[in-house]
Design a binder for these strands. Structure first.
Lengths: 191, 191
DNA sequence: GACAGACTATACCGTTCGGTATATAATAAT
DNA sequence: ATTATTATATACCGAACGGTATAGTCTGTC
């Protein structure tokens, strides 16, 4: 019955379903059974709501990502674990993941993009640092960390987005993760 | 000096820069140096503008995609040509490509998503048909056409989106295309 | 030169937008 | 009990929203 939390959850659902610009403050507060001043008391603005949602959902994930992923010796395992972190995250709150997928390709001059851009740059940096660890062992990958990071990230988020879109019925299992890991490491002919 | 075309181009620029919901009809018409009734004469509604933009830019690309890509014997060449089609398309109108990347992950109940969803399903179908041709030769890929299509599409659009985002300065060249083709076919260890 | 259809300008519609001024209720500290 | 702080409600703000009714103005046809 925490109203602040209530507002965030309902706003997230609405943002994911109707879009940030497409959903008004009034709809958020009626859905949350509060009134406008309550929302403005806790968040200051509509932007503040989105900012808080990102802070609440994404910060935790990024910290976990930064802490958990590391390359020791087995690349296959390391990649699989990264994918697992993403799929777990997406299943915890598919609405939020879908929203990030939408907003990070958002219009670069919109207010929503300015809010989320920093978070997604942090995400990218974490993945790229991992890839630098990899390339320090696999020297043939030296200098390609950027592209590898991009490719891995796109493969993962593509899988997750599809599963969310097609209804989460067919859950992502170990098989999917193994398959995607192989796709990244060995290409299609090892499938 | 074709006003209809003028409106579409300016609307595209604004949609890509400020978002579909984030940009009003009034801004479009003033930018295009026409008045509202002109826009409503040609397009009927704001939705109609977006619909026409998609029809104009995307239909042509999809037809080209469906006509040009085919698998004969050399998979490396076939994949490279698909990637080339996408990069060419994106360089022709980066604004539109960025808009598609944004809207196809859009809120599923928004009016913009309903407009664009069909186009992106057609795109997916075309790629999947190609992949079925491939799997009819490479039997070990049988039954995985969906995942392969998804992975290929995500790798390509990820490359294109990044290049658009980072400013189009470093153009996509044959080297990038070869590298991405290898990533898909053989994984990272052949890079 | 009358007339039809395509096009465009002025001015306006009701609604919703994000945000706030004011007042009151609840809570906790003194 | 008094007071300060936090939290919530009523009622409202000007601006912008998508869209349109009306009144033309062009252009080509007969």
């Amino acid at each position: 019955m925490d109203k602040r939390q209530m507002i965030m959850e309902n706003a997230l659902t609405l943002f994911a379903r109707e879009g940030y610009e497409g959903c008004g403050v009034m709809k958020i507060v009626t859905e949350s059974q509060v009134t406008k001043p309550t929302l403005y008391h806790y968040f200051g603005s509509k932007e503040g709501v989105l900012r808080s949602i990102y802070e609440f959902y994404f910060s935790e994930f990024l910290n976990k990502l930064a802490a958990d992923i590391k390359y020791q010796d087995n690349l296959m395992i390391a990649i699989s674990e990264i994918i697992s972190l993403y799929t777990d995250f997406a299943y915890q709150s598919p609405d939020f993941y879908w929203l990030t997928a939408h907003l990070r390709r958002g219009p670069r001059e919109s207010e929503s993009y300015l809010i989320v851009a920093d978070y997604h740059m942090r995400e990218r940096d974490i993945l790229e640092n991992f890839m630098k660890d990899v390339s320090s062992v696999h020297m043939n990958l030296k200098g390609m960390e950027g592209q590898l990071t991009r490719n891995l990230h796109n493969l993962i988020s593509g899988l997750v987005e599809e599963k969310i879109l097609t209804g989460l019925g067919n859950k992502i299992d170990d098989h999917d993760i193994t398959l995607l890991t192989k796709q990244f490491l060995y290409g299609i002919f090892s499938l």
